[in-house]
Design a protein around this nucleic acid. Structure first.
Lengths: 152, 152
DNA sequence: GGCATCGGTTGCATCTTGCAACTGAAGCAA
DNA sequence: TTGCTTCAGTTGCAAGATGCAACCGATGCC
């Protein structure tokens, strides 16, 4: 049977999974951040089958995560991250951070380009800057929140 | 052919995708955060087929993201997030935040339980607290970083 | 022109996914 | 106790997804 689709789910998480709930798509985006731009580069760096890569690249382009850009002086084109695609950096890093947290080695460190010092681990912060744990937060429906905000 | 496995990949991102590079697994974890604990609860809230759910739950338990806990006074058991599983909160929220950023409505708001104010969006921060954009950071091999750190 | 490379397409074989039907163990009501 | 229902799966099947290898046409390059 056809795989279930969540592109019209009300939950933004489920909708996003339509785009990145697929291993190859995530790895393609990772490689795009790493500098890959050509079909052949993705193929070689990921070891992915050409047909799969074709389908994934098209999907990522259709979703506005990658875009095809013509290469001057060549009939071939390249794939570049869009603004939306670059927004996935945070997601990728969050996953990486989680993966490092649970055992395994830490082969890479994310550093500040300016002073070469490691970047702070991702964490939630309240409006006043306090760091928040998962138990300190709650996901509330938007309309309920705006009602509460109006009441005060 | 069998799906390619990345459980032994050197990249923590790729390894993590082995666990969460699957739509149902992510949604199951989401529901676990939302309070689902029983097989039937996950089935109903997600509309997932029983056989798929069985396999996913077993995988998540094997990976140490969920654990089966016996229910006193009953022969049935429940599934609960482990410490490792709760660590996925940040990842899920990062994905949600990205999904909200790119069009679509924003049905939920993450609020601080203490003062009911919305939590700041996730972002990277340098060691001194400055907020960092993706372009301000770089992923460097750990040994190269420690070499650079030693040099200074 | 001749040959290699790039960027795919096509054809299988095998896995995975989804639905539905079935099962066996609890739980419960009369 | 019997019968009915719910829970938590298991099994069988149809169809879609994935992976490999072979093929192909349009560049690129000597």
């Amino acid at each position: 049977m056809k795989r279930k689709s969540f592109e019209n789910a009300e939950c933004p998480l489920a909708r996003s999974l339509e785009a990145i709930g697929d291993t190859w798509s995530v790895l393609i985006v990772r490689q795009a951040f790493a500098g890959d731009r050509r079909f052949g580069e993705f193929e070689k760096s990921l070891g992915v089958a050409k047909n799969i890569l074709t389908v994934r690249l098209r999907k990522l382009v259709a979703l506005g995560i990658l875009e095809q850009v013509p290469v001057e002086g060549s009939a071939h084109h390249e794939y570049a991250l869009t603004e939306k695609g670059r927004g996935l950096n945070l997601v990728l890093m969050a996953i990486r951070q989680w993966g490092e947290g649970c055992g395994g080695d830490t082969p890479y460190v994310l550093v500040d380009k300016r002073d070469r010092k490691p970047v702070k681990p991702l964490a939630f912060h309240a409006h006043d800057g306090r760091e928040l744990a998962a138990e300190d937060m709650e996901l509330v429906p938007a309309e309920e929140f705006s009602r509460a905000a109006r009441r005060k």
